[in-house]
């Protein structure tokens, strides 16, 4: 451990998630990854402190989901969560911004998008705009924190990474590329405390106005062949629908087999260029 590395004060914003299949309340995947990142940071940088922050209504369902985060803290000394209690349908951003501005930490970690409500992914940006802090999205790892500057790894597609240096305080958002969250244990979750403080609620009237329906399956785009030749158009129209059993090549040479596979890989665009 280098001497100039010092502990950081981290606040992890957590929300009530929603299981994609059953819709039950749970710890949100991205937020839990954010907490995992913070816990990893705490383990590496002694003297770090983690705070958990949530703004929303205090109900039984949401409480059990929030306790899911606290269940991850076994053996870390973190045993409470600050709950900014708001009415249903209130906008969480002003309450969170105010709370963070009052006692600014060095690093705020949040998931990229909520699993409930609008889920627009605006929250980290709104907070960054409110607080005037830099923001990095798609965080994969925090490499080090030195003299108020954090070196981060940002996730790029196909598992690639980009190294960034950010002056603290900063907001970082994590998505599926961040380390997977550890198991949530029942005991610590049950014992932990929710420190609820009621805050003034600004109702999100705009959102309430918009009609929301369970997501419809998006139509699959058809391959429309706009070819000059009638023959091509006919072939496209008469082509067998995809699916069914695939093509089987038997008794061909390795080269031909490789050729066929190569063609498919190139069509799918998975080969590196």
């Amino acid at each position: 451990m280098r001497p100039e590395e010092q502990g950081v004060e981290v606040v992890v914003l957590v929300s009530v998630g929603r299981h994609p299949i059953t819709g039950r309340a749970r710890r949100a995947d991205q937020d839990a990854r954010g907490l995992e990142l913070a816990l990893g940071l705490e383990a590496r940088l002694p003297g770090s402190r983690i705070g958990l922050l949530h703004a929303g209504p205090h109900r039984e369902e949401s409480e059990s989901a929030l306790r899911g985060y606290l269940g991850m803290t076994a053996g870390t000394g973190l045993d409470s969560l600050t709950l900014l209690e708001q009415a249903e349908g209130a906008d969480a951003i002003p309450a969170l911004a105010e709370h963070l501005a009052a006692a600014p930490p060095q690093l705020v970690i949040t998931g990229a998008r909520a699993e409930r409500g609008e889920g627009s992914g605006l929250l980290p940006y709104a907070l960054a705009e409110h607080l005037g802090w830099p923001l990095v999205n798609g965080l994969a790892a925090v490499e080090k924190v030195e003299n108020g500057v954090a070196t981060l790894l940002q996730a790029l597609p196909r598992g690639q990474r980009r190294r960034l240096k950010v002056r603290l305080p900063a907001i970082v958002s994590v998505d599926a590329a961040a380390p997977a969250a550890r198991q949530s244990a029942f005991g610590p979750a049950r014992r932990a405390e929710l420190e609820a403080t009621p805050v003034a609620a600004e109702l999100d009237l705009e959102l309430a106005e918009w009609p929301m329906v369970p997501a419809r399956k998006r139509p699959k785009r058809l391959k429309i062949v706009k070819s000059a030749s009638a023959r091509d158009r006919f072939k496209a129209a008469a082509a067998k629908a995809e699916g069914g059993s695939g093509q089987v090549l038997e008794g061909v040479s390795s080269e031909q087999a490789a050729e066929a596979i190569f063609k498919l890989l190139r069509e799918e665009g998975v080969l590196p260029r």
């Binding site: 909520a114 609008e118 329906v213 997501a215």
Partner: peptide, 10 residues
């Protein structure tokens, strides 16, 4: 799309 791909918002 909202709420982790589970809602359609008009």
């Amino acid at each position: 799309r909202g709420a982790a791909e589970s809602l359609d918002i008009q």
